[in-house]
Write a protein that binds this DNA or RNA. Structure first.
Length: 559
RNA sequence: GGCCCCAUAGUCAAGCGGCUAAGACGUCGCCCUCUCACGGCGAAGGCGUGGGUUCGAUUCCCGCUGGGGUCACCA
């Protein structure tokens, strides 16, 4: 077989050589140790929560080492492509603060375009590049055209793949299939010419070494040494429309774009031998591989399952809707990614997560279960650490889309709203009232007259005369200039005058000796002013509301 | 079924041959406290299993079991 002739026959339009491409895309000039990583999603829908794992790892590794993090769109399957998915993907990641140094970006027209000298970064428009290498493989006798469709192949082998799996009579049928595929290798130049002349399409298959008994070894950055059978399957390189499969595109792109570390989900592990073989055939330097465990969920039977598209929390955009701020989600993922992250966070509450020394060695090789409890805890802490200004801004962004009423109130008087958010915030032990932004409104609605309602009731058996007396006395002695201690001393005095214990210890020691305690008096006031039994520090609340509104509520409470 | 990955409490996890087997979330109890939210203290709960190796295994090796992934002209 004259491989050169075959190559020309198959790819008559390809005039460039791999050497030309190498010259066009010279190696990157980066400092020693700099890592080049990428996120390479296929635009088939929303960004999956699990996608955040490789994204964060890639981003940290690249930027921590002074390297490059780029975005490549793997749109080689037109049938699965969802219009606008690439665009929304970029927008979503942006909201999570993920910055790409090069690759696919959003143009001024809102469409995907790109930036960087190793492009284009959309695989669908890199066809001619793949063909250069495809031609080389054919010329080297390492790839061949196959004119049979998958169905025809199965017919030849008298098998049905789906049935094989079900019947589990895999081995024999798989062997038959393989035989049928192998038969395709035995073509003659005349046959190829005839097929091409007839206008038949072909797929380009790799000519696999064929010794599945031998092992190939690779050192995974997380799992260590992995030993697998050498690839012996003539897998497809180029589909019949000339577009490459993932495997081929991965090899060519990551080589040309200078990727040093391939970070991807563990579902790729089984196809690693294919990639090792391809890099070898192509004489490409092998990147380092890291296969990340998948995030799981629990199904009805209590088994772990991959967090799939339809599951709650699978869509990264869901979190914004549910009221989680992007930082919290990122922080949660980081705690799963690096086991010492939480420890670091506790020691460095104020630093941005980008200051955390991300370490591959601290990554776990087993898949973990998604845990809303933990996310909630992380989120609560993230929100509690924010400044009043920041949480005001974040809440507004959320409320604009999800709670117009709240949004209107917050933005009507930003300073007032911020002073509400400032309650118990900023110290070493900040209040932790919010897990999600949806918690904000029920927490602070009573600060707004038109949202204020009396939600809770006085305890059973409360003496209304005492309530009225307490409120009257409170109004009589109220002085806005009082500090919190002076204020509370007056409340205590009122309690005492009504036969309620001013000292809680005394009350607890002998409850029967009093009608109640200062806690009860406070509860009366709190209920009147906030409409509920539980609220932040009453003194502060009253000062934010102001004397007039405080009194108005005290008055209307009595009816 | 073949191949591959994984295996410490309900969850996430330290551990890397000798420990009363860290810590976090969740759960429960107590304390603090004018309520709440914090904060503090404490409790319950764990090395899947059988063989080796070793003076000694959670730790190293093998089998088993369990869970997961994968086996496309999808990525």
């Amino acid at each position: 077989m004259d491989y050169q002739k075959l190559a020309d026959l198959l790819f008559p339009d390809v005039t460039e050589t791999p050497a030309d491409l190498e010259a066009r895309f010279p190696a990157r000039q980066l400092p020693e140790g700099a890592k080049v990583t990428r996120f390479a999603p296929s635009p088939t829908g929303f960004v999956h929560f699990g996608g955040l794992f490789p994204v964060l790892v890639g981003e940290r590794l690249a930027h921590q080492s002074g390297g490059v993090f780029y975005l490549r769109i793997e749109d080689t399957d037109a049938r699965r492509e969802v219009p606008g998915a690439a665009e929304s993907l970029i927008t979503t990641l942006e909201k999570y603060g993920i910055h790409f140094d090069e690759g696919a970006i959003l143009g001024s027209d809102g469409k995907v375009t790109d930036t960087g000298i190793y492009g284009p970064y959309k695989q669908s428009v890199r066809g001619s590049i793949y063909h250069v290498y495809a031609k080389q493989l054919v010329r080297d006798g390492l790839a061949y055209p196959c004119f049979s469709t998958d169905e025809e192949l199965e017919e030849l082998a008298n098998t049905d793949k789906k049935a094989e799996i079900k019947n589990m009579d895999w081995e024999n049928q798989a062997a038959a299939r393989k035989q049928a595929m192998l038969a395709q290798r035995d073509f003659t130049m005349e046959q190829v010419e005839a097929e091409l002349a007839a206008g038949h399409a072909f797929v380009l298959r790799i000519l696999a070494d064929g010794d599945g008994e031998k092992k190939v070894v690779n050192t995974d950055l997380i799992r260590g040494k992995i030993e697998m059978p050498v690839n012996d399957e003539d897998f497809v390189l180029l589909k019949s429309d000339g577009i490459p499969t993932y495997h081929f595109a991965h090899a060519v792109d990551d080589h040309l774009m200078g990727t040093t570390h391939v970070i991807r989900g563990e579902e790729w592990l089984p196809s690693l031998p294919k990639h090792l073989q391809l890099f070898n055939y192509l004489h490409f330097r092998l990147p380092k591989y890291m296969h990340i465990s998948q995030i799981m969920r629990l199904d009805e039977n209590g088994n772990k399952k991959k967090l799939s598209k339809r599951d709650m929390g699978a869509n990264l955009n869901d979190y914004a809707r549910m009221g989680y701020c992007a930082d919290a989600v990122v922080e949660y993922v980081l705690t799963l990614l690096n086991s010492n992250y939480e420890e670091w966070r506790t020691a460095n509450p104020a630093l941005p997560y980008t200051d955390f020394p991300f370490n591959i060695k601290k990554m776990s090789s087993s898949g973990c279960l998604f845990d809303f409890n933990k996310l909630n805890d992380v989120s609560k802490n993230v929100l509690s650490r924010m400044s009043a200004d920041r949480i005001y801004d974040e809440t507004c962004v959320w409320a604009e889309d999800n709670d117009p009423e709240l949004y209107a109130h917050l933005t009507a008087d930003p300073d007032y709203a911020k002073s509400i958010f400032a309650i118990g915030r900023g110290g070493k032990k900040p209040r932790k009232d919010f897990t999600v932004f949806g918690d904000v409104k029920p927490y602070l609605d009573f600060f707004y007259d038109d949202l204020f309602t009396v939600k809770d009731a006085l305890p059973e058996g409360t003496d209304m005369a005492d309530v009225a007396a307490a409120i009257a006395a409170f109004k009589d002695t109220y002085n806005e200039a009082d500090d919190t201690n002076a204020w509370f001393d007056k409340v205590k005095a009122i309690a005492e005058s009504l036969g309620y214990a001013a000292d809680m210890k005394a009350y607890k020691a002998d409850p029967a000796a009093f009608k109640g305690s200062v806690a009860d008096i406070s509860a009366f006031l709190r209920l009147a002013v906030t409409g509920r039994q539980n609220a932040p520090d009453l003194y502060t609340v009253m000062h934010l509301l102001g004397r007039e509104r405080t009194f108005a509520r005290l008055d209307s409470f009595l009816g």
